[in-house]
Design a protein around this nucleic acid. Structure first.
Lengths: 208, 208
DNA sequence: TCTTAATGGATACAGTCGTATCCTAACCGA
DNA sequence: TCGGTTAGGATACGACTGTATCCATTAAGA
C-alpha cells in the first residue's frame, strides 16, 4: 500500500477538525477553508474526502453520536457489577452531563447541532433519533425495575425517565454557560435519583 | 422633530422582522438584506436605524427578554389572588414552556441566541443575566415559603429552584423539537410541583 | 422663503462562501 | 514500460456578506 494514508483515517482527522471549530467558535464559523486550516491541509483535500459541506456536517453529527455512545458504555463498564436499573440510569445521565474538558467541547458541538436542526430539516432527521432511542431504552429498564418492586408502583416510568433526561439536558445547558459547575449539576441528578429509588446506597459517579 | 414616522416604531418593526427570521430559519439566516426583505423596506433603511448588525442582534435579544418578562407577568396576573409561592413558581415555569405558536417561535429564537452566546462572548454578557436573576428571585420566594412551613424543611430551596428551571429548559427543548407536546411537558412540571409542595389543590395553568 | 437636518433609494466595495476546473505527480496492475 | 486510477496543489467563478458612499426628497426652524 503506497498512497494509502488511509481514506477513513483522513476523514476522521477532518471530522475532528470540524468538531474542534464547532465547539470553540460555533457551527456558523465552520467553513471548508477553516476546516482545511484547522486540519493543516489544503482546501482541495477537504473537497476530495467530502463531496459536500452537507456530507461533512453529517459526518460531524455521526461522530458526536458515536462519542456519546462510547461514553455511556464506558460508564456502564466502570460501574462494574452494579448493573442495577439505578446504575444504568446513573451511567446514562452521568454521561450526558459534561464532566471534563473533552465532553464539554462535545456538548457544545452537540448543542450547536441541535439548535441548527430546529430550523434545518436536513439535520433534524439525523440528529433527533438518539434522544428518542435513549428514552425508550431507559423507560424499559425502569419498567422492569418497577415490576421488581425497586421503585414506587405509583410512579410512571416513562414520565420519570422523560423528566430525568430533560433535567440532565437543562443542567447541561447551565454547565455549558458556566452558570453551574459539573459537580453541582451531578449533585442535583443524584438527589433526584435518590428520591426515585428511595433511601439506599448511592452509586458514586467517580469522575476525574 | 422631523419626519416622525417614529424612530422607535421603525426599530421595533425591524427587530420583529429579525426575530421572525431567526425563529423560522435560524440565526445564521439573518442578514441585513433578509431583514430588509422581511420588513419590506430597503437595505438602506435597516442600515439607517441600526448602525451595526451587532446592534440589531442585541436589539433582538433585548426584545426577547422583554417578551418573556411580559409573559411571566401576564401569568402572574392571571393567577389573580393565588400569589402563593407555588403560584409564582407555576407562573414562571409555565411562561418558560412554549404554549402557543408565538411563544414557540420566541423560544426557538431564544435557543438560537443562547447557543450563539456559548461561543460568542459579545452576546454572552447580554443574554445570560436573565436566567441568573430568575433563579435568585425564585429561590428567595421558596425560602420564605419554607420558613412559613409550606414545604419540607429538609429541601434546599436553591437546589429545588435550579432543578425546576433546568427541567423546564430541558422540556422546552424537547417541545421545540416536537419530541413532546406542550401538554405533556406541562404535566411533568405540575407533577414535580406537587411533589415539592405536597398534596394540595393544583393551580391549573389553563392554557389552551 | 431659505437653510438645514432627517430620511431613504441606488450602487459600490472588499471579503468570504461553497463549489468546480485544470493540472501535476505518484503509484497501481498489466 | 505503459495507461489509469488516486491524491492533491492552484486557481477561478458566481453568489452573498456587512458596510460605505453618493444622491434625491421632504419637512421643519429661521
Amino acid at each position: 500500500m503506497p498512497k494509502q494514508v488511509d481514506h477513513d483515517e483522513r476523514r476522521r482527522q477532518l471530522t475532528e477538525a470540524l468538531l474542534r471549530i464547532a465547539s470553540t467558535r460555533g457551527l456558523q464559523a465552520v467553513s471548508m477553508r477553516e476546516i482545511a486550516a484547522e486540519a493543516e491541509v489544503s482546501l482541495r483535500v477537504v473537497q476530495y474526502y467530502f463531496t459536500n459541506k452537507q456530507a461533512l456536517l453529517e459526518s460531524g453529527l455521526t461522530e458526536l453520536g458515536a462519542r456519546m455512545d462510547r461514553r455511556v458504555r464506558q460508564r456502564a463498564a466502570a460501574a462494574a457489577g452494579e448493573l442495577t436499573p439505578r446504575g444504568v440510569l446513573a451511567a446514562v445521565l452521568g454521561a450526558i452531563l459534561p464532566s471534563d474538558e473533552q465532553s464539554r467541547l462535545d456538548s457544545l458541538a452537540w448543542t450547536a447541532y441541535y439548535t441548527a436542526a430546529l430550523t434545518d430539516p436536513a439535520l433534524a432527521a439525523t440528529g433527533l433519533t438518539l434522544p428518542n432511542a435513549l428514552e425508550d431504552f431507559l423507560t424499559a429498564r425502569l419498567t422492569t425495575a418497577q415490576q421488581a418492586g425497586d421503585i414506587d408502583p405509583d410512579r410512571d416510568p416513562r414520565t420519570e425517565v422523560a423528566a430525568l433526561l430533560a433535567l440532565a439536558n437543562g443542567l447541561t445547558s447551565s454547565v455549558l454557560s458556566r452558570q453551574r459547575s459539573h459537580e453541582a449539576a451531578a449533585a442535583i441528578v443524584d438527589y433526584h435519583l435518590d428520591r426515585l429509588f428511595g433511601p439506599r446506597a448511592t452509586l458514586r459517579p467517580s469522575l476525574d
